[in-house]
Simulated assay, not measured.
Amino acid sequence: MKLGVYNAILHDRTLPEAIEVVANLGLTGLELNSGGFLPAVHIPSFEDILTSDAARDDFLGLFAGTGVSIAGLNCNGNPLHPNPTIRDKHAEDVRRSIRLANRLGQHRVITMSGLPGGEPGASQPNWIVNAWNSAALDVLDYQWEVAARFWKEIDRLAHDLDVKVALELHPQNLVFNPADIRTLVERTAATNIGVELDASHLFWQQMDPVAVVKNLGPLVFQAAAKDVRVNVENAAIYGVLDNRFRRLSPTEPRTNLGGDEWANEWPKDAAWDFVALGKGHDTAYWTEFLRALHAVDPDMLVNIEHEDTELGRLEGLEVAASVLLAADAALHASLRQ
């Protein structure tokens, strides 16, 4: 396994400083944000790398001798958004990330499937959570048509440039479970589209990431190590579809998601929270998660994503890295037996 960190939590540091943090954690990979919801903070020479061998070599030189290498590019966003300001930017970020991956000798781009509106002319995405009525299936029929057109194009580009596009199974996207990724692959005849197995979003949907890895097999291209703690008393009242978010005002610190869309404040007594590895599931569980991934690809890239608000940036990475490394050691010890 190749264990690393997704760099968004280290955007407050320069790239050399972020690389040093990863090396000091005993990890070997750094997944770089390359657009979408977040800017490509650690790739300031993005455009130059696409056209200049010297710029590419200078960028790769920052990793030389550090023991840390690039572990995929991440451009999570909504390339199917009905608002063209958001859609066009995020869709082009996917294309540019695939081209950049090829230039950097990388073979993985992580993103999301995206989510269209519910009908032509819509202005906002429409996530069908439970298609119990015929009108909901009409919406899904339209959304799959939109998705298939875009992802056929992306699959061709990825195939031509020897890049695998790994879609995070993230709610509020058209593709958020194993059935959906199979539908997308079937509708597009895709060869280079699969899954980034982020365990966290499966946990809160009451899915078992180990079972999902075994179910999807070679469709799993990459993985994210992020835990979830279900707050049982709150979940018993509000359910895991807890929707009590608060809109942040322009005077408060907030994250732009494209156009005039912003991340909201998480419920204070939430039904579930993102937490560092070990705070939701123990080392034994993560050992089995790595075992399932290892069976698919012994060189699978597995990167920590830190979103635990109870821990600082470095503190959270240290907690997660200690659990991930212990799980990896336990896995390899068992394989030697």
Rank of each mutant, 00 (worst) to 15 (best):
T66I: 05
S69Q: 14
A270D: 01
T85A: 09
I70E: 05
Y142R: 08
A18S: 09
K164H: 01
A329D: 08
P82H: 11
E92Y: 07
D269A: 00
T85I: 15
N83Y: 08
I193W: 01
A166R: 10
N83Q: 08
N78W: 10
V175H: 06
R291Q: 00
S45K: 09
A276R: 14
V230L: 05
K89E: 15
V68Q: 12
W144H: 01
L100E: 08
V146D: 09
R13E: 13
N177P: 07
W132Q: 12
D227T: 14
E119A: 13
A101C: 02
N303F: 06
T14N: 01
R156M: 09
E233Y: 02
A224C: 13
V109T: 04
R291T: 02
S97M: 10
Y6L: 12
S113Q: 09
Y285I: 02
W204N: 00
D282W: 13
I86H: 11
W286D: 08
D242M: 07
E17S: 11
N102H: 13
T287C: 02
G65S: 03
L73R: 08
W127D: 00
I154K: 06
L197N: 01
V323F: 08
G258Y: 15
D48K: 14
D273E: 11
V212H: 01
K152Y: 12
S334P: 00
V5D: 03
V163M: 00
S322I: 13
L137M: 15
L161P: 13
R247F: 07
I43A: 11
V212S: 08
A40S: 13
R95Q: 13
P39E: 12
W144Y: 06
P171Y: 00
E196H: 05
A327V: 15
C75M: 05
W132T: 15
L104A: 03
A330I: 09
E196W: 06
D269E: 08
G4C: 09
A321Q: 06
V146G: 09
D57H: 05
L137G: 12
P79R: 07
I110C: 08
L311Y: 02
Q337D: 03
E31L: 05
V41Q: 02
R156T: 10
H332F: 05
H11Y: 14
R182E: 06
G312S: 07
D260C: 15
D57R: 14
L30G: 12
A329N: 14
N33I: 15
H159Y: 10
L15Q: 00
A18E: 11
A333G: 11
F176C: 15
A55Y: 04
V139L: 03
D160L: 11
